[in-house]
Amino acid sequence: MSARVGRVAALALLAAVHLAALGAGFLAPYAPTAQNRTLPYAPPAPLRFVDAEGVFHLRPFVYAVTEQGSVTGAYAEDRRRAYPVRFLVPGAPYRFAGLPGHVHLFGVDEPARIFLLGADGFGRDQLSRLLHGAQISLFAGLMATVLSLGVGWLLGTVSGFYGRGVDAVIMRSAELFLALPWLYLLFAVRAMLPLSIPPARAFLLLVLVIGLVDWARPARLVRGVVLTARERSYVLAARGFGASDLYLIRRHISPQTAGLLLTQAALLVPQYILAEVTLSFLGLGVSEPVPSWGNMLADLQHYHVLASYWWMWAPGLALVPVILAYYALSEALSTR
């Protein structure tokens, strides 16, 4: 019963997070690359309901802020004018599911900015970057998982089903890939690709590298399942009335690997999300100005950012519930 509740909660959270990432263009008030050079490291703006005169407003508002003196990050609010939060406001253009759009869920009038999660060193809205970065980081994890499980499934099935020489070759190569510490292998493969590439290609390359480097573990597991499935009498019986290899794999063998693949997916997605984050953090992944949770965290390598601007941790903190949900899901799947 509680396992069921956990599974539903985890799935709901993951669905919400992924939907938010998909709808980033609409949900985010600004474009992720829009800079405000006068507002570096502006702190998160509190939503206010009571103004300077002590009057209560039903519609929340924010104050505009200006940097104080020469110290970066010291800001003062200008309480003379309140900027009420408006909904469905026109703003920066974006594309959603291929369709162009320019309406954002919320925003405030110029020249004020609504930075609910503060701003980074270029005065870019952290919330907008977090949402857009989720697109990169979460979907890199998903796509790499599909790729690695796809390749692992194919090689594991071929290896287990046909056995003999093919099996030996595939399993020896798997051992080779498993002999290296994973992150080292990932880096070594990343090293063979050009360093500075446009973000869209960088994203695809990352997915390819992460997905292809890790085919060996799923391949081994799938092979094990296929080996036992192949020996079932009903596979033999189907052969007996003339079923082809392809039919046997499709009808009798693959369905048995489905459970394994699902459990593996729940384990691998968070691991691959972290791989993207790590690579981008170290400058080997998706690069500025396109946000990913990894390159957003890279700013924390400067000690003054690390110690002074807590909102720069947002991507790191956002990772925790996502990973927790995936773990809960994998646990629920494996104890089913």
Binding site: L274, V277, T278, F281, L297, L300, Y303, L306, A307, W313, G316, L317, L319, V320, I323, L324, Y327
Partner: peptide, 22 residues
């Protein structure tokens, strides 16, 4: 242990660094 398992290595390392800086 579940919390620590879900904490990304990167965040853990940065967190300890913050502790040291602070």
């Amino acid at each position: 242990t579940a919390m620590l398992l879900a904490l990304p290595d990167l965040v853990l390392v940065l967190g300890l660094l913050l502790l040291a800086v602070r």
